[in-house]
Design a protein around this nucleic acid. Structure first.
Length: 497
RNA sequence: GAGUUGGUAGCUCAGUCGGUAGAGCAUCGCCCUUUUAAGGCGGUGGUCCCGGGUUCGAAUCCCGGCCAACUCACCA
């Protein structure tokens, strides 16, 4: 313990992460004293390591020089030479620093780098004995000193809570996380490209609304000081997008966040991303064709395949055409061909026999829908358009021409959950007003959006409309089992110290 | 909101019947010029989630709380 005077940082006994922090802060001070900049300036000219790797040619004797920047993720010191790994957004690259290729002083300083530091390097490519393309460092610069240790290199970071709360660590350490989010944002980009090519216009409508409408959900309430007026975070953009149909926009969509003041779960986050698409002069079938083409195009462009493997025995096949199954057919398939003829008592009895729980004497449609939600929906792994739903379930859509008790809509089910509802939109303002009044009569409804009704009274073209839950679409396309794995910063309860 | 499971070093995890708190990695020191979970030798590192209780003695048993995951409810 005597020969430490040449290494001031070592004088701090390392005990806790706070001590590591203190020791690194001291290193920063040392560097500053030596005239170095531990939190350096711009470092232009670096290429992605994936590009650099391509430049190496086995048969060439010419030296290929290169320039890279990234975070140190591993450090293997072997006396007078050092192997290290850096990672940039394109991947990992091995570095080799050798006494002889660097000055005595530079080599000593390189040796003092820590895992987690961000550095810029210049060097030449070579292949190691084990045939790994590696950069021999000829010059380097510290760009940002890391003051805190990274998670362990082998097991990484597995604690789910910490992965969500400190997503940056998850992204540094876990390849799967990084890939999932790259895919997420590629999917969103491809959706926009697709709709652009189809002549749709992306629009923006209010997220801060005086009357939250377009869905039945509990809104987040807030207050706008300047107007001395309560406001709500939107639960859906629907009523504003329909105003645009009135205004003459024929093909519009909005891809952004909605907010619902409900519980969170594996499938729910209080803020979630949804796209709503409307096409004037179309209907529900227009939208079915559109979403089939949209999802398959996006899957091919992002994943290069229509087969998505979730597990050994669960492979989702997006090949077209997708199954179309009328709601009542699915019910009869599950609950008996005579289901809609038998008495209410008989239906309750059969429901209970199938393991469902009912209290009191629920109306027939509730018993039927319980069968759909609890027993059928989760079995619809392959893409299925569930069509012709009971009108009582969907109050804001057009009725089927041949049967007024059914509405002309679809619910697209993939991977056992609803990915997208689509509608032949109601454009009759008198009927719309009647249904709003029916709703506000019920317990949880809000105020009627008179401005929206006024808009529709000016004439809204018949239209097809649909929404796609982007988070769930990404789950389906990436094989994620939890919505938190496809949202960068999912909602968690704030943690007090 | 209810039920189940969990929370131990910076990270990944052990911890027996209630009897001095453990390992690997990271970190620190020494050795090492083709390693890649580098290797060898030697160290440091703990509010055992928080607060009570039982006990001679609690990471361990009991009660309460916090946070998370899963299931359910609401919802997309």
């Amino acid at each position: 313990m005597e020969n430490q005077e040449n290494s001031p940082a070592a004088e701090i006994p390392v005990q806790t992460v706070e001590d590591i922090f203190t020791q690194r802060v001291n290193k920063v001070q040392e560097l500053k004293n030596e005239g170095a900049k531990p939190f350096g300036e711009a470092f232009e000219g670096a290429e992605h390591v994936s590009i650099i790797r391509e430049k190496f040619k086995d048969d060439s004797t010419e030296e290929v020089s290169c320039c890279a920047a990234g975070r140190l993720t591993a450090f293997r010191v072997m006396g007078k030479s050092i192997f290290a790994d850096i990672r940039d957004s394109s991947g990992r690259m091995q570095l080799y620093a050798q006494k002889g290729h660097l000055s005595e002083e530079d080599f000593a300083k390189f040796k003092k780098l820590d895992i987690g530091d961000i550095i810029g390097i210049k060097g030449v490519l070579f292949k190691t004995r084990t045939a790994e393309i590696t950069i021999k460092v000829t010059d380097y610069r510290l760009l940002s000193k890391s003051l805190r240790p990274l998670p362990e290199k082998w097991h990484g970071l597995t604690d789910v809570e910490q992965r969500y709360r400190q997503r940056y660590l998850d992204l540094i350490v876990n390849d799967v996380t990084r890939e999932t989010f790259k895919k997420r944002f590629a999917i969103i980009r491809e959706i926009r490209n697709f709709l652009e090519q189809k002549g749709f216009i992306e629009v923006e409508t209010p997220m801060l609304q005086p009357i939250p409408g377009g869905a039945s959900a509990n809104p987040f309430k807030t207050f706008y000081e300047a107007l001395n007026s309560p406001m709500y975070m939107r639960i859906a953009p629907e009523l504003y997008l329909k105003r645009l149909l009135v205004g003459g926009f024929e093909k519009v969509y909005e891809l952004n966040r909605n907010f619902r003041n409900e519980g969170m779960s594996r499938r729910h986050n209080p803020e979630f991303t949804m796209i709503e698409i409307y096409q004037a002069y179309g209907d529900c079938r227009t939208m079915m064709a559109l979403i089939e083409e949209l999802v398959t195009t996006v899957a091919m462009n992002v994943l290069g395949t229509l087969e998505i493997k979730h597990s050994e025995d669960k492979i989702i096949n997006l090949s077209r055409p997708w199954r179309i199954a009328p709601y009542n057919d699915l019910i009869k398939e599950k609950a008996g061909n005579d289901w809609f003829e038998v008495s209410s008592e008989e239906r309750l009895k059969r429901g209970r026999e199938m393991g469902l729980k009912f209290e009191g004497t629920p109306p027939d449609f509730e018993v039927t829908h319980e069968i759909y939600e609890k027993l059928i929906e989760q079995t619809l792994i392959q893409p299925t358009f569930v069509t012709r739903l009971p009108a009582v379930l969907v109050p804001l859509a057009k009725k089927c021409e041949d049967n007024p008790s059914l509405v002309d809509v679809f619910e697209l089910e993939i991977n056992g959950q609803e990915v997208s509802p689509g509608y032949s939109e109601l454009n009759d303002p008198i009927e719309q007003r009647r249904r709003f009044e029916e709703q506000t009569g019920s317990a949880d409804a809000g105020k009627i959006d008179e401005d929206f009704l006024t808009a529709m009274e000016h004439g809204m073209p018949p239209a097809g409309g649909m929404g796609i839950g982007i988070d769930r679409l990404v789950m389906m396309l990436t094989g994620a089992e939890s919505i938190r794995d496809v949202i960068l910063f999912p909602q968690l309860r704030p943690k007090s110290n």
